[in-house]
């Protein structure tokens, strides 16, 4: 009886439809549940490039000094003629030690400095300080690739060249400092490419 077959088939389809309806109802409930977790996000504005002082503070995290146990505070030395914004360093700490800034006059010893921030220093003062800090555990940070060829350890790119920095491994090794892998990866990538 073909007619009976059709009836059975039609009613089976109806049952399948019920099945699908149940699933659809479930799906809708899931949508409602999901929509409660819809998120709201803050501004999408792009972050401004980091200032040199920010880099210097960051390097305190990724470089290791030979006798860190004896270091009570991070001494960041800035030549007298530098235009660097040293106010950034005020009140900062790194790895549990406070950060302090010292301005260096001509001829001042650099022995107790952990970092020489030469990013905005007059060229003459920068060269002189670089020479006196040579082979000492003092992280020298300058601007422009020429700084590294002149014996500096870390040279930040000039704002015109984009962000980032390079690390001179030779200078770092001579100063008996240790650079962490992360900072080396960042630096080498910049320098290498």
């Amino acid at each position: 009886m073909p007619t009976r077959r059709y009836i059975v088939a039609a009613q089976a389809c109806w049952a399948a439809l019920c099945h699908a309806l149940a699933l659809a109802t479930l799906g809708i409930s899931l949508v409602l549940a999901g929509q409660t977790s819809a998120h709201a996000q803050t501004t999408d504005a792009a972050a401004s490039p980091a200032a040199p002082a920010t880099y210097v503070l960051g390097f305190l995290q990724y470089f290791r000094w030979p006798d860190e146990a004896g270091i009570e505070r991070w001494q960041i030395c800035v030549p007298a003629g530098s235009t660097a914004d040293v106010a950034v360093y005020d009140g900062q700490t790194a790895r549990g030690r406070p950060v302090s800034v010292r301005r260096l006059g001509p001829g001042d010893p650099v022995g107790d400095c952990q970092v020489l921030d030469l990013t905005a220093a007059p060229a003459a003062a920068a060269v002189e300080l670089l020479q006196s800090a040579r082979r000492q555990p003092i992280l020298t940070v300058g601007e422009g690739a020429s700084f590294c060829t002149a014996g500096g350890m870390v040279c930040l790119r000039r704002p015109a060249d984009g962000s980032g920095f390079e690390v001179s491994l030779t200078a770092v090794r001579e100063g008996r400092l240790k650079a962490s892998a992360q900072v080396l990866l960042l630096g080498r990538r910049k320098g290498g490419s």
């Binding site: 401004s48 490039p49 980091a50 995290q61 962000s163 980032g164 960042l186």
Partner: peptide, 12 residues
């Protein structure tokens, strides 16, 4: 992302 965030290094 620690280093990249610290240095605000976009490419990194």
């Amino acid at each position: 992302s620690q280093a990249a965030a610290l240095f605000r290094d976009r490419e990194a």
